[in-house]
Design a protein around this nucleic acid. Sequence first.
DNA 1: CCTACGTGCTTCGAATTCGAAGAGCGTGGA
DNA 2: TCCACGCTCTTCGAATTCGAAGCACGTAGG
Lengths: 168, 168
Amino acid sequence: MSEPAAGLNSEQLGAYFALIEVGSLLQYAVDEHLRADGDLSYVQFQILARLVDAPDGRLRMTDLADGVVYSRSGLTYQAGLLDKRGLITRAPSADDERSVMVTVTGAGRELVARVLPGHVERVRELLFASMTEADLAGLGSILGRVRDHMRAVPPRSAKPRAGRKRTG
Amino acid sequence: MSEPAAGLNSEQLGAYFALIEVGSLLQYAVDEHLRADGDLSYVQFQILARLVDAPDGRLRMTDLADGVVYSRSGLTYQAGLLDKRGLITRAPSADDERSVMVTVTGAGRELVARVLPGHVERVRELLFASMTEADLAGLGSILGRVRDHMRAVPPRSAKPRAGRKRTG
DNA sequence: CCTACGTGCTTCGAATTCGAAGAGCGTGGA
DNA sequence: TCCACGCTCTTCGAATTCGAAGCACGTAGG
């Protein structure tokens, strides 16, 4: 957009578009690699990586959903696929019969270990290859703050009925 | 460089995760708003915005696909929806009978003008509210360079398709 | 003119995604 | 105890997405 859109100057617009494009391209490239290397979608890899990182290799579905930007139903679907492949197991929690504890299996850990090197290699080539040390520090600092802010602003809950206006 | 084997140090990992999460959350929030306000998906809005910005309000499908991070077939699908709603028109190019020229209609321009204020408002609230002037300059500079680099690295073409050979 | 190959777009089938609705467990108050 | 409500997860239908294959046009070489 060459004209100053309703409220963002050209510098802001440029940063906004660059962010969206970089995020999408990176996710796409990484997803592609994971599928080719380990037959995993990016979401599946995120699930496994989070589990490997968790104490005892297990988490509740809700905790997984909070970590992954993803809908609950989509998480159920992908967890079902991972379960079928023997990469995770699911069992009702002892504490809360409502909750489902997801645990990564040995095969799951092995698969993550196998695809991880290529994964980070891809990320480094695409994202960090063109960045200096100062860039890295700046980017991490800025995006960390932005992420915290976005998490704080209620993103999914405080929706008073989409498409409905209160202009009586 | 405390972890030479794995490939990414914790600072890099943090920046990488933050980038993915911020990009996803931003896209999700904006998409949600566009659907509620103008019954447009984010991709549809991107298509229309690009057309409004283009000289004479028209572009070839290929040029659109290059601008939007999107598959060709997905673009055809969404262009079909926009065509049905009377927001764009499609016609074979006079130059190349193969190409399809996409033109934004008056209704399309009006719709973009209507949803744009709320769109940029959302972006400002989520993305720029927690950033300083220096942050903005830094982010734009870094991501601009990263984007150029990612575009330069052929992401979709140079795939040797592991295990597949030229038959015959 | 005709053939071979490259380009631009669409169609097709399969997989993935989402929100809404449904089912089961837990907690607090009467 | 019993009921109402909230939380957690799954199922369901519809929409969207992708890559591969197919179709039509354009260009180069004979």
